[in-house]
Nucleic acid binder design. Sequence first.
DNA 1: CCCATGTCCTGCCAGC
DNA 2: TGCTGGCAGGACATGG
Length: 261
Amino acid sequence: MPELPEVETIIRELRAKISGKELRELFIFDKRIGRLRVSLPLKITGVDRHGKFIVIHSSRGKILLHLRMSGRLQFSEKGKSKRSHKSERAIFVFGDGSVLKFFDPRRFGTIEWRKGKLPELGLNPLGPEFTYKNFRDILHSRSRTIKNLLLDQKIVAGLGNIYVDESLWFAKINPRRKSDSFSDMEIKRLRTAIVQVLKEAIRRGGFTLRDYKKTTGKKGSYQLFRKAYSREGLPCSRCRSRIKRIKIGGRGTYFCPKCQA
DNA sequence: CCCATGTCCTGCCAGC
DNA sequence: TGCTGGCAGGACATGG
């Protein structure tokens, strides 16, 4: 389930590996993932992250990849452009013979071609616009459960189920709280928690529980550091109470019932 | 508009 | 052992 830190890890690897290369061929094996009507070859000029989108820049437009839940990219310097696995949905072949494979067992991932603007998203939590004031204005202008609000990409772009639970744990905020009920102190704590959690997760190369892996096939390590997500019944590392799991908006939600009362 | 819920999809796993 | 049902979740559609 790639979220901002996982996507950031992936784009840093991709940037180093495919910038400046020529995209010679693109095979898409599953129509559901998207159709890319663009003439090849294409010169890759850079790779960026936009929320959870991977943006591959070229001189004529951008390729947007979204991994959704189970999407994974695997890069090899010398690879075959033949499909060798059931969950392989697309293969990018570069001028030097290296290949990038898009695996996605659950088939929610997408590939699209964009000439103009990128999709509109909310605040970038690692950008200069994620100020206390901007964040407070958004929280106070809505009356939603904080868990749902933070999952909304049009509010803050890049958080998913894991990092929302982790951030709320650090901020000591109950995931069921309504966003318009927050004090200034709580908003400051939450803002700081989000930034710190995301930075630490990037430093650790993301969170690997099942699907997510880096483009080299290696795992991230944030799961070893996690405080709430997928820790049901285990002791809270602050107060030793047992972490609880509830459902909010259909999403599994982990929190400490004592510190996040 | 605002907010919550249902849906897409496949692999995995608990329980019988 | 083999089957079944439930669950996982990002984003979008739908409906109140």
